[in-house]
């Protein structure tokens, strides 16, 4: 089987699991958790493209999610835009902001993007708190309309489940198509050797900026869906700790592996909810986990699996490309 076929087989299995999961959910609360997983999968998939394929890290992705959430929420609840149009406009704005941050920082060698995005996250947080006639300040924005499409309203846990997972699966498939293409090879090449990538014609700075913009769009869409689902948003949801959480999800699963990002989001999202003691020390937990991962297992769960698999299963054979 080619890698493409393997991926679509995995996608098919995941799609089936998504279809069947609600049958086994007695408690609607679990659906709510799965919905948040889907929203995280969307954001993490975008972030994973940036970290894994361009080798750059953003510590401001929560701010892009916040941008998507607030802009979409404000446009629809204050100015009466239809939610989908509002989400689209928010995505365009997030892309522009990412362009402005990425252009100067990603041309330089070294991790300037980390600092710039960190600062960006702080600034966005302050604006959310201060511009209270639009954002509602610390108590946030409420009464945000749900998404409506083709006569359906995606307001309750069950209906939103279909929407969120459809977008998450689509996001994964698009990211995977990109990774397996000329552009994706160029990105992975520049991760391995920027010098050699440039020498074969990869416009390295330009590609890094584009993939950063793309990851911001993923984040923004995740945020918009979040806003229209919960109907209420507060600044705390989009703070710097949330950004650390997203990076941790990428690394837990395994950076550069799209399934790794998915696994990271699926694994870490329910944890704080499952263990309530955790909730209070969530940020400490994510920070600590991130540190341990970077030191002990930079390849994440997917890397550990690849390393351990030969001990359990039949020996992995060389796959044709």
């Amino acid at each position: 089987m080619s890698r493409g076929q393997v991926f679509y087989l995995q996608m098919g299995c995941l799609g089936l699991a998504v279809l069947l999961a609600p049958l086994f959910m007695s408690n609607p609360y679990y659906l709510n958790v799965l919905n948040v997983v889907a929203l995280n999968v969307i954001a993490v998939t975008g972030l994973n493209l940036l970290i894994g394929f361009a080798g750059a890290v953003s510590l401001g992705h929560a701010a892009f999610i916040g941008l998507g959430a607030y802009l979409s929420g404000m446009l629809s609840s204050i100015w009466g835009w239809p939610p989908l149009a509002a989400a689209l406009a928010a995505a365009v704005l997030a892309a522009l902001v990412a362009l402005v941050i990425g252009l100067p920082t990603l041309r330089l060698e070294g991790n300037y993007l980390v600092m710039a995005t960190l600062g960006f996250n702080l600034i966005v947080g302050i604006i959310m708190l201060q511009a209270d006639q639009y954002t509602g300040g610390p108590s946030g924005l409420s009464g945000i309309e749900p998404v409506r499409l083709l006569g359906m309203t995606f307001s309750d846990d069950q209906s939103f489940y279909w929407l969120a997972w459809a977008v998450a699966l689509l996001g994964l498939a698009l990211a995977r198509n990109l990774a397996a293409s000329r552009v994706g090879r160029g990105l992975r090449a520049l991760h391995d050797s920027p010098l050699a990538a440039a020498a074969v014609g990869v416009p390295t700075a330009n590609y890094k900026v584009r993939v950063f913009v793309l990851s911001a769009v993923y984040a923004s869409i995740s945020g918009s869906l979040y806003a229209h689902y919960f109907g209420i948003i507060t600044p705390r949801t989009f703070d710097i700790f949330r950004s650390v959480e997203l990076v941790t999800m990428c690394l837990v699963g395994g950076m550069g592996s799209l399934w790794g990002g998915f696994i990271g989001a699926a694994f870490l999202t329910p944890l704080p909810q499952a263990l309530h003691v955790f909730d209070q020390y969530k940020d400490v937990f994510y920070g600590g986990l991130l540190m341990v991962l970077l030191i002990r297992e930079p390849e994440g769960l997917v890397g550990a699996w690849r390393r351990l698999r030969p001990r359990f299963g039949p020996k992995a054979t060389g796959r044709p490309a």
Binding site: R182, L195, A196, A321
Partner: peptide
């Protein structure tokens, strides 16, 4: 400066960028 994480074929495919 080979792309260590890409396959041999992918390395050469990148050469067509």
């Amino acid at each position: 400066q080979v792309f260590a994480n890409l396959s041999v074929l992918e390395n050469v495919m990148v050469g067509l960028h």
